[in-house]
């Protein structure tokens, strides 16, 4: 059986809100080490990979590996019933046909209990190679989100080019063109600083609709990490306490 408690429901609420526009059905793979999710969007262009290590929970117990097949829209409805500061407990039996969620306020004066019906999801599990990216960028989530939002008003796709000078986001649209150059911060200690590690300069073109969906994870972390190599999917990563939420997006490439 699974029993996993988070001190604050806000974490799971934010995670599920962040992925709900990217994927519809997900398997929560629960094991001794924590909860893992991998799901591909229906067009096979974007992939969500979530890791919640057992240490990130205030209580965690999982005797046997269980797969919980979850319809994301249904989980969103139930999580709306939790207050951000409530303690949240996930409970499931080994047969994995339902997930029980309890929400408890800090004074333990209110205990809410909801049951989510689970389903069998036939998801192909993809092998993501452990890649050393040619360029690694870490930048504040707000800055990344604003650029993605602004560029999406002009164009369907963005070109991200990275070299030692900085990272340049550019787009071409019917009304005109635009670009934003972000240079690496001189002081690393600054909050809101950008760091750029370039082994090989990289340039790739990506669909802005998906990137804007990924930006819904901006409430989960201060910074976003972009892992880029030529002509392979970009990794957009938000670090969590004891885990991560990663999105992968296949690039647009020449014939």
């Amino acid at each position: 059986m699974l029993e996993a408690k988070l001190n604050e429901a806000a974490l799971l609420k934010k995670i599920i809100d962040a992925i709900k526009d990217s994927v519809t059905d997900v398997n929560f793979e629960c094991s001794e080490t924590g909860i893992d999710v991998q799901a591909v969007d229906s067009s096979h262009i974007a992939l969500v990979s979530l890791k919640l290590g057992s240490d990130g929970f205030s209580d965690y117990r999982c005797d046997r590996n269980i797969t919980l097949g979850i319809k994301v829209a249904s989980l969103v409805k139930i999580l709306r019933c939790a207050n951000d500061r409530d303690a949240l407990t996930l409970m499931a039996d080994d047969n994995g046909d339902q997930l029980r969620l309890t929400f408890e306020d800090s004074k333990s004066e209110r205990v809410s209990e909801f049951v989510l019906k689970l389903m069998t999801i036939d998801q192909e599990h993809l092998g993501i190679p452990d890649t050393k990216y040619e360029s690694d960028i870490t930048m504040p989530v707000d800055a990344f989100q604003k650029i993605m939002r602004d560029m999406f008003m002009l164009s369907e796709s963005v070109k991200i080019s990275c070299d030692k000078e900085g990272v340049k986001f550019s787009c071409k649209g019917d009304v005109g063109d635009g670009s934003v150059l972000i240079k690496p911060s001189s002081s690393v200690d600054d909050e809101g600083s950008t760091t750029i590690a370039v082994e090989t300069p990289v340039s790739m073109e990506l669909n802005l609709k998906y990137l804007n969906n990924f930006c819904k994870a901006s409430g989960l972390a201060q910074n976003v990490h972009l892992g880029m190599s030529s002509e392979v999917p970009i990794m957009v990563e938000y670090l969590l306490p004891n885990g991560y939420l990663r999105f992968y997006l296949a690039p647009k490439i020449g014939d």
Binding site: H44, E124, A250, K252, G254
Partner: peptide
Amino acid sequence: ANKQSSLMSFFKK
């Protein structure tokens, strides 16, 4: 114009 690629051509099953 560049074409949208699929994840399936990068990540093995």
